[in-house]
């Protein structure tokens, strides 16, 4: 039975990759018209851009889960708060875009650390379900607070980025600069995070604490502080995601709902795997865009979940996840 599932899984991966690269090949062979190929690539790029946002939110969830085993249902709300903070600095206080964005990201990181200290710390040691519900409750509160803060409210806002309304042309494929910026920024951020986790003391401490709390503690790593830092990093990443989403969607109190796409992304990649979160986000973003373009109405919304279910059924631990078996 397991073998059948594994074989089906390999088949699925092969089919997906084949499907993905087929259009350019078919176009090169002259079987698909150039216009169709451009359409296809256009969809892939815009899907990838949205996928990057999913990926970053998923990344924040995974960072926190890896370290603290807390599934943060409020990650979307952290993103929302981050976007609003950036909005406050850039649009309300009128700071230059980059300065405001940095301030917003920093403020959101502080907020993330405060969340860990005030909300999550008191429930450490309780069953996972209870902790999940605490973060969920925090998300409710955050959304509610954002809607009563003067200047934020329940209206939709925009952050004007330096890339707004400009385009990049890659041959016949036209990409808005906002989309391009998202993809480039995500790639840069992933590189930075990689360097951070492999080359800095704090990053290594975070990795150690994620793998074995007790051992890390005995090695002199202040595990609690490191966890708070991880919440900070994760909230900072969320703010960046919010900043990226702002030009393609809007800044509003409900934007945290994106978590319902970020979770499938994180699970798809194998909950707890950082590359998995990125790949998962991209897969879901691209599949969604393609489903929206080529399939009848309605499939776009369920595409992420159908993909998630199929993957989980065939490979219950996700694309990059590991099977952990308890030792008895």
């Amino acid at each position: 039975m397991e073998r059948v599932f594994a074989a089906l899984w390999r088949l699925l991966v092969a089919a997906a990759l084949l499907g993905f690269v087929a259009p350019p090949v078919l176009a090169a062979l002259g079987l698909v018209s150039g216009a169709d190929l451009v359409n296809y690539l256009q969809q892939v790029v815009s899907g990838a851009a949205l996928g990057c946002v999913y990926a970053l939110v998923a990344l924040g969830i995974v960072l926190i889960y890896k370290a603290t085993e807390t599934i943060n249902f409020a990650q979307g709300e952290l993103m929302m708060l981050g976007a609003f903070l950036c909005f406050t600095f850039v649009a309300i206080l009128g700071l230059p875009f980059w300065a405001g964005a940095l301030l917003g990201i920093g403020a959101c990181a502080v907020l993330g650390m405060a969340t860990d200290r005030i909300v999550v710390r008191p429930v450490v040691g309780q069953p996972a379900f209870a902790i999940v519900m605490v973060t969920l409750g925090f998300g409710f509160v955050a959304r509610s607070l954002a809607s009563v803060i003067p200047g934020w409210g329940t209206d939709t806002h925009t952050i004007v980025t330096p890339f707004a309304n400009q385009i990049v042309a890659l041959g016949p494929v036209v990409i808005s600069q906002d989309h391009a910026a998202i993809i480039v920024a995500t790639a840069l951020l992933c590189g930075l995070l990689y360097l951070f986790f492999t080359h800095t003391k704090l990053g290594l401490a975070m990795q150690a604490a994620s793998q074995n709390q007790l051992a890390a503690y005995y090695m002199g790593i202040p595990v609690k502080t490191v966890f708070t830092m991880i919440w900070g990093v994760s909230a900072g990443v969320a703010a960046i995601a919010g900043l990226m989403l702002a030009p393609i969607a809007f800044v509003h109190t409900q934007m945290g709902m994106i978590i319902f796409k970020a979770f499938p992304a994180a699970v798809l990649g194998g909950f707890g795997s950082i590359p998995g979160a990125i790949v998962g986000g991209l897969v879901i973003g691209i599949v969604e865009a393609l489903a929206g373009f080529y399939l009848p109405e309605g499939f776009k919304d369920v595409a992420a979940y159908v993909v998630l279910l199929v993957v989980l059924l065939l490979k219950p631990e996700g694309i990059f996840g590991h099977v952990r078996k308890k030792k008895v």
């Binding site: 409710f140 607070l145 009563v148």
Partner: peptide, 14 residues
């Protein structure tokens, strides 16, 4: 305020 109810729910859960 429109979000008040959800906020109270959240607070109660926490």
């Amino acid at each position: 305020a429109p979000g008040f109810e959800a906020g109270i729910y959240g607070l109660i859960i926490i």
